Simulated scan of single mutants.
Amino acid sequence: MRERGVSGKLGVILTGVGVFLLGLALLVRFYAYDRLAVVPLDQETVSVSEGPGATIFDIANQEEITVDLVSTRNVVGDVEASEEASDELGRQIAVWETLVYTNEPGEEIDTDDPPRSATYDRVAFDRHTGEAVKCCGTFTSTTADENGESIRNTIGFDGLYFKFPFQTKKQDYRFWDGSLGEATEIEYKDTETIEGMEVYRFEQEIPATDVGDINAPASFFGIDEEGEVTIDRIYSNTRTLWVEPETGVIIRGQEDQLSMANYEGEDVATLTDVVIGYNPETVSDNVETYSSLATQLKIVRIWAPIVLGVLGLVLLLLGVAIMRRRSRDATA
């Protein structure tokens, strides 16, 4: 009699634990994962790209020169703006600002000595999908006034900007290009490995496109005319991004840029011709930082629910079996 009571209690306990573990499996997969698979609001990162042997047009000397270029990108999250946007729109929004400046290695940058080029963007995007959101006073700036303050142009960004979605698929996406001022298709090409990390390689082909005019003295470009002329800036680029699929983070990036000065259908100067990409230190830092996060997300998304679910189901079935056997023994 006592044994029947003990087995009955054991059956109830096993059944209860089994139900609890099954519920926990669902909670981990559909609640905990959704709260982990978001970008941080307080983002603060620095990445460095290098473009050796670049050809650029030097305005001071009015000629094409060959230099090594280094591009430094600072990204900082605006926590207050992100929280306000999330409350207002009823979805999880991040607002990040990014400053990218390009110059020769080791050159000091100040008001009197500006970089070769600089871009300052404020972008709002969905914390899960990475898709840009039109809100929050987003802007882009590529020029500054006489006091060195950025001249900001309000703009609504589109497509992906900082990263790809969590659980990136082997499919095509739309990625923002600042020179075009719009997002265009970026195609999945292959699965590769960087320092032991599996990544998806995407490529974005931007054909030669007129992206704006330049008013400059004809003599700048060796044009046999008096005064200023209007030059078309013809831009093309092949952007290659290596993306860790679980997090959607860009582990490595590279651009093969060509920008030509064109006058009345004829190229008169090379403005920029460079292959520039993340330096090895930046790539290694990205691999080290995001490999552990990718593993954690995969555990929460796949392995923890499976283990908890299987264990819960086994205990539930065992508990039910014990209680049924006790019931049969009691009626025997």
Rank of each mutant, 00 (worst) to 15 (best):
R201G: 08
V38K: 03
E192N: 10
C135N: 14
E185Y: 01
H128F: 15
V38M: 05
D126K: 09
V28M: 14
I13S: 00
R252C: 03
R239H: 07
P280M: 07
V274H: 10
R35V: 03
V243A: 13
R239I: 02
D68T: 06
I109R: 04
T138E: 05
T142W: 08
P245N: 08
K169F: 13
E244M: 02
Y161P: 00
L293D: 07
V46S: 09
R35T: 10
R2G: 08
Y161K: 09
A118P: 05
T270D: 03
G248N: 02
R4T: 13
V243P: 12
D126Y: 12
S259W: 04
F202D: 00
Y290E: 01
V12P: 00
L27I: 12
D158E: 14
S327E: 10
L69W: 07
R328N: 05
Y263W: 15
R127L: 15
D213T: 14
G106R: 03
T72H: 02
V133Q: 06
T209E: 05
S150A: 11
S291I: 11
L271M: 13
V307S: 03
S71P: 02
V75A: 07
S291V: 14
G227Y: 02
G319I: 03
Q254A: 13
Y33L: 12
S47A: 12
D145F: 11
E228W: 07
E266M: 04
V268R: 01
L22P: 01
L318D: 02
N61H: 04
S117I: 07
I214A: 06
L41N: 13
S7I: 05
V199R: 00
L36T: 02
T142K: 09
L41E: 10
W242I: 06
D224R: 12
G106N: 08
G148L: 04
S219K: 06
E88V: 03
V39T: 13
I206K: 00
E288M: 07
R252H: 10
S327A: 12
L271D: 14
F220W: 15
R2S: 04
R201E: 14
S141A: 14
I302V: 10
F57Q: 04
R122M: 03
L22S: 03
Q296V: 15
S150M: 09
T238H: 12
G137T: 11
M1W: 09
S49C: 04
I214F: 12
V310D: 07
A60G: 02
V17T: 13
D210M: 07
D34L: 08
P115E: 05
S291F: 07
V12I: 11
P165W: 05
E228Y: 14
E264Y: 12
K169S: 12
F30I: 06
I250W: 05
L69M: 03
V76E: 09
D213V: 13
Y173N: 00
R35D: 07
L22E: 05
R324M: 13
I56H: 07
D190N: 11
R152I: 02
L22H: 13
P105K: 01
L27P: 08
E264A: 15
A118N: 01
L308I: 11
Y31H: 01
L89Q: 12
E187H: 05
T55R: 14
V46N: 07
V287K: 00
G312R: 04
E203V: 09
L41P: 00
F166Q: 00
E264G: 13
E182S: 11
S284N: 11
V100L: 02
T289P: 00
N215F: 09
D34C: 00
I302G: 01
F202H: 02
